[in-house]
């Protein structure tokens, strides 16, 4: 489009294509998977050597490869004032789980609302203390217990490093209410409500 037609960023919040590209794109964000780089970058391991790439571009490649994504995060993850797209953008980028030291309360519930699993490092642990760098391949086991109507307290996370060595830990599952479990089983709050409506 032409410069004169820009209008404002806010006026384009109804266009997910714009908003996904704005997710994790804060110019001050520092992804620890890269050394000291500021901005919306990650490493794209679908490419040889895992070069630096825009989060959006890498996420597109992962989606094409059918690879679900996980975010490793620190404390009070998700803090910030304008958060209507924070969880939606995360989900649309293909992130299936977040493992954080702690959560901003509303973002945690929004992640579930978008079908993203909020996990927490065991008390006192963090990505650093577990020696995780983000270059590992992750698996999360025990999610299927939710299908039986129970919500496990913890899920087993295994991180396999490039050299084949594995680190396992029991991550706290931060699905805190029965309603949230229903949302997650349905893939998100909108899907949950949608099925309620079409079932009645």
């Amino acid at each position: 489009m032409e410069r004169k037609d820009f209008n404002s960023y806010g006026s384009r919040r109804g266009n997910h294509e714009v908003m996904i590209r704005g997710t994790f794109a804060n110019i001050r964000i520092k992804n620890q998977i890269l050394d000291g780089v500021e901005g919306g970058y990650t490493r794209d391991f679908t490419q040889e050597g895992g070069p630096q790439a825009f989060v959006y571009d890498a996420a597109q490649n992962y989606q094409a490869a059918g690879t679900p994504l996980v975010v490793l995060a620190g404390k009070e993850y998700g803090s910030g004032s304008s958060r209507d797209w924070a969880a939606k953008g995360t989900a649309l980028l293909g992130v299936k789980a977040v493992i954080a030291e702690s959560y901003e309360r509303i973002h945690r519930s929004n992640l579930i609302g978008m079908g993203v699993l909020p996990l927490q490092f065991p008390a006192g642990e963090s990505a650093a203390s577990l020696g995780l760098t983000g270059t590992e391949t992750f698996s999360v086991e025990g999610v299927t217990a939710l299908n039986e109507g129970t919500t496990p307290k913890t899920l087993k996370v295994t991180a396999t490093a490039e050299d084949g060595s594995a680190t396992s830990f029991d991550a706290v599952l931060r699905i805190d209410t029965p309603g949230e479990a229903d949302y997650y089983r349905n893939g998100g709050i909108l899907q949950y409500v949608l099925r309620q409506i079409s079932a009645n």
């Binding site: 990650t42 679900p68 996980v70 698996s139 893939g187 909108l190 899907q191």
Partner: peptide
Amino acid sequence: VRKPPYFEGMQAQPEPVKDITAPASC
């Protein structure tokens, strides 16, 4: 305004939730 893809391929009954397994990366 664009139609977001939240419901693409959605079925009347939810699929059982699955473990998140490799290949997963960050």
